[in-house]
Design a protein around this nucleic acid. Structure first.
Lengths: 185, 185
DNA sequence: TTGTTATATTCAACAAGTTGATTATACAAT
DNA sequence: ATTGTATAATCAACTTGTTGAATATAACAA
């Protein structure tokens, strides 16, 4: 799971309450991953149980009291571990985009690491493009054998085309990202 | 949920067993949505409970016996309903891509419907591009205020750039798809 | 005869995410 | 007084998805 790690990543910037985290998370990583407050509070609790976080009750007078979470050494170790161990070839399960989550926190590690990530991601996209072109060819062959499928097949190919275009875009992005990271040396 | 509807969609082509469905699903829609056999059998069971499917035990001599699922009238109604009611502006939760799932089964409806879907999807992408450009601007403003964020911000912007490029690609895809669907009139 | 592959299904446990309501405090505006 | 808004957190129920094993039948090959 990466949500937990995304939360640690943000708490690493500065200690926060669940309330603040919820807003911060959805504002910063929100364009590729959103989480509900109820889930975030639950994860926070679980991470405290695991010893990744500690919390402290802060009494307020102008507002309701709050609980501020901080990352422990163990939590930091876990985060760095998560950040630096990524296999883009392992089909990413779950909802969000674990690659982007790691890129987001790229500033915490050497630029070299992110560059490596991006280059591996390019290979992944290249592989995807080939697979999808293969799928389109297969569908075309099927239609030769069963011409009555032609109409349905048109739509099937549209979804494969989507994948192809998206993989090409991901490739383009990785190239631009590499350029941006390399240019300022 | 769309997995259920994807399964009905395939069963609509022809009645199948859970075993066949699992393979068929992952081979056809697999490039944007994958499901494990254990989940598919569970959904099949749930849909039979809901009256969307009926099943029949088929005794085989050369192979283990099997259970063949067929779509009921109620299931077909549910499927058509799902297919023709889609709000691309409702942030799509869950894992797979519900838009693509609908496009995949576009052959079951008027081409006009899919065209409408694609045009709405374009608006959605356009909106996304603007939002992401806005995010990049905001991050840049933040960096002016807090120059020490510059390094981290570089990575944050990389994720926004990803979103921007992806949305542009989705736009490009929708245009091509519209072209393909329109050309053969 | 033993192992392998393909067919076919089931199940328990867990992890992750969503819905929606509820509770509480405090300030500001109407 | 009441309504609205922001802050702050909690909870139960449910849905969706993953892991991984277990069970069973039969063909086929070593």
């Amino acid at each position: 799971m990466s949500l937990k790690h995304g939360l640690i990543g943000l708490l690493n910037y500065e200690p926060m309450t669940g309330y603040e985290l919820t807003k911060f998370f959805n504002e910063s990583l929100g364009h590729f991953w959103q989480a509900k407050a109820s889930q975030i509070y639950r994860e926070l609790d679980a991470m405290e149980q695991s010893g990744w976080l500690t919390s402290e009750r802060v009494i307020q007078e102008d507002k309701p009291n709050k609980r501020v979470y901080s990352v422990t050494e163990q939590g930091k170790a876990e985060f760095t571990d998560w950040l630096s161990n990524f296999d883009p070839f392992k089909p990413h399960t779950g909802k969000g985009n674990a690659l982007l989550m790691r890129i987001f926190f790229g500033g915490e590690l050497d630029a070299d690491y992110t560059l490596k990530l991006l280059r591996t991601s390019k290979e992944y996209s290249l592989k995807g493009i080939k697979t999808l072109e293969g799928i389109i060819d297969e569908v075309n062959e099927e239609v030769v054998k069963q011409p009555e499928l032609a109409n349905s097949a048109k739509y099937w190919k549209l979804t494969a085309l989507f994948g192809e275009i998206m993989n090409k875009a991901a490739l383009e992005w990785a190239d631009k990202a590499i350029e941006i990271l390399e240019e300022e040396d």
